[in-house]
């Protein structure tokens, strides 16, 4: 089998991998922000809810999270009379990965927020900004920049976790590789998986490059 055939077959799964990556990250970040907000409020109830959520989500293997989303979510929705059995598998994949990663992201945001100097907020207030401007213009950008190294690791983890969506029957790059390997009755299996590993590696290196550029751009802010 030609190397080019392996590469083109594997790359046919790339759009699914990237779609999963982008949307799961966006939703995970949104949920993560919500959980971080909950845990930072001066309320024991909110704090305990957020801890419970984190304990459950972070103790669950991503693979299991995907299975639970795929088999559990339709049953949950059926309880309130909504039938989501014909939702696309991609949607379940995104839900499973988003929930799985929301816990890690919320901890990254929370710890970054706590490490922003309180004086920054006070300084914004005393120059006459209202609290919401102070938050969005001064505190939030610094929080994101402090969280950046953690976010980078989480994005890379998410790239790798997208390979697990085979369990709900989605055809991403990894799935294309197993299909191809099965078609060939066991020949070239090593080659297929080595090429697959190299493609994932390239994606991760590209992500690392992007983050390196951002960090360089803001190197004077985060010191």
């Amino acid at each position: 089998m030609k190397l080019s055939r392996i590469i083109t077959t594997l790359l046919s799964g790339l759009p699914v991998t990237l779609t999963l990556l982008v949307f799961s990250f966006i939703f995970a970040a949104a949920i993560g922000l919500g959980i971080a907000w909950l845990s930072l409020r001066n309320s024991a109830v909110c704090y305990n809810i957020s801890r419970l959520y984190l304990g459950l989500v972070r103790g669950t293997p991503p693979l299991l999270m995907l299975l639970l989303a795929y088999y559990g979510l339709p049953k949950l929705f059926l309880l309130v009379g909504i039938n989501i059995n014909d939702w696309s598998k991609l949607l379940f994949g995104i839900v499973g990965l988003s929930v799985g990663w929301s816990g890690y992201l919320s901890e990254a945001f929370r710890s970054a927020y706590l490490s922003v100097d309180q004086g920054q907020y006070e300084a914004a207030l005393v120059v006459g900004m209202n609290p919401s401007d102070a938050f969005w213009r001064i505190i939030m950008p610094q929080t994101v920049l402090i969280a950046l190294p953690n976010i980078e690791n989480l994005v890379i983890g998410l790239v790798k976790a997208t390979s697990l969506v085979y369990v709900i029957g989605l055809v991403d790059m990894y799935s294309s590789a197993t299909d191809l390997s099965n078609q060939n009755q066991g020949v070239y299996q090593l080659e297929i998986f080595v090429v697959l590993a190299l493609i994932y590696w390239m994606i991760v290196l590209a992500i690392e490059w992007v983050f390196r550029s951002i960090k360089k751009e803001y190197q004077y802010v985060t010191v």
Binding site: I156, A161, S163, F193, A197, Y200, W201, V204, L205
Partner: peptide
Amino acid sequence: RGTPIIVQLYV
């Protein structure tokens, strides 16, 4: 660090 564990397992 750049490759999924499942791919490493198969390699």
